[in-house]
Simulated scan of single mutants.
Amino acid sequence: MRKRLVEFRNVSFRYGDEQPWVLKNCSFVIYENESVAIIGHNGSGKSTIAKLMNGLLFPQEGEIIINGQHVNNETVWEVRKDVGMVFQNPDNQFVGTTVQDDVAFGMENRGIPRAEMANRIDDTLTAVGMQQHRMTEPHKLSGGQKQRVAIAGVLAIFPSVLIMDEATAMLDPKGRKEIMQTVSDVQKERHLSLITITHDLEEVVQTERVIVMNEGEVWDESTPRGIFAKKEKLQRIGLDVPFVATLSDELRKAGVPIENEPLNHDELLEELWILHSTM
């Protein structure tokens, strides 16, 4: 059985005593080496969850446990060694004059020896395909390249949990696909827990499990296939479903007996081919 790496126990949070609750009695677990998507409409509490995991915020009620440690003012710096976060706009994370300097920044703050820093810079830039840009000024990079550097800077501190908070939202479809493939490869290689907070349904279907937030509460959690089987309920709380799922429903209405719940075009084509072969 996999180790519990992130635990939210009845967590509630609001941005001020007179403000409404952003999270209400929120509980879930994320395990080591697991990929999880957190989805929900705007204002459902997704990004607040990410900031609570990283100790940027603290809950008014409940407990958060990261890798066995309760998150509080005393433990927050230790917790941040385990949790790395990549934000939507990579420019907000850059502090170095070159790509190499930027990747080194987090390690310098942690007192990592120079020789070890050099090895990690090489390894992480190679992992994200940015080794040839190590002496480039970050502002000269494309959006996708900037996001790769931001990911490298987080990976260099060797976190146990990598949070992608709408990290591909500013990229075009090709850039999104490339970044998520890079992250998926690194996650498997380093056995990270990957938490993806996103509106992109293509990213959601690639994860092992989905947590659906609605009005600050955990509305449901299941596999991507299990979640997207609830199309009408998802749409009632303001969420989209993959185009393939909608197309499958229309085909069923037209008399095509699709039994399973395809998540992508390849699965739908396979389903149709099987049906064709048996006719």
Rank of each mutant, 00 (worst) to 15 (best):
residue 2 R to H: 12
residue 3 K to Y: 11
residue 9 R to F: 05
residue 11 V to N: 00
residue 12 S to Y: 05
residue 18 E to H: 08
residue 28 F to T: 06
residue 36 V to C: 04
residue 42 N to V: 12
residue 43 G to Y: 00
residue 49 I to H: 00
residue 56 L to S: 10
residue 58 F to S: 00
residue 70 H to Q: 14
residue 74 E to F: 13
residue 77 W to H: 14
residue 79 V to L: 07
residue 80 R to Y: 11
residue 80 R to W: 07
residue 80 R to F: 05
residue 87 F to G: 03
residue 89 N to G: 02
residue 90 P to T: 11
residue 94 F to V: 06
residue 94 F to S: 04
residue 97 T to S: 13
residue 98 T to R: 07
residue 98 T to S: 15
residue 99 V to G: 05
residue 105 F to L: 11
residue 107 M to D: 04
residue 109 N to T: 12
residue 109 N to A: 11
residue 111 G to A: 10
residue 112 I to K: 09
residue 112 I to Q: 10
residue 115 A to H: 12
residue 118 A to R: 15
residue 121 I to N: 01
residue 122 D to N: 13
residue 125 L to A: 09
residue 130 M to T: 11
residue 130 M to I: 12
residue 139 H to I: 12
residue 141 L to C: 12
residue 143 G to S: 13
residue 147 Q to G: 10
residue 152 A to H: 08
residue 158 F to A: 15
residue 159 P to A: 08
residue 167 A to D: 07
residue 167 A to K: 02
residue 168 T to G: 06
residue 170 M to K: 05
residue 171 L to N: 06
residue 172 D to Q: 12
residue 183 V to T: 02
residue 186 V to Q: 04
residue 186 V to Y: 04
residue 187 Q to I: 09
residue 195 I to D: 02
residue 198 T to R: 06
residue 200 D to N: 15
residue 205 V to P: 00
residue 209 R to L: 08
residue 218 V to W: 00
residue 219 W to M: 05
residue 223 T to F: 06
residue 223 T to R: 09
residue 224 P to Y: 09
residue 228 F to V: 07
residue 237 I to P: 05
residue 237 I to Q: 04
residue 242 P to F: 05
residue 243 F to C: 02
residue 243 F to R: 15
residue 250 E to M: 13
residue 251 L to Y: 03
residue 254 A to F: 03
residue 255 G to V: 07
residue 255 G to K: 01
residue 256 V to C: 04
residue 260 N to R: 12
residue 265 H to K: 10
residue 269 L to M: 14
residue 274 I to F: 06
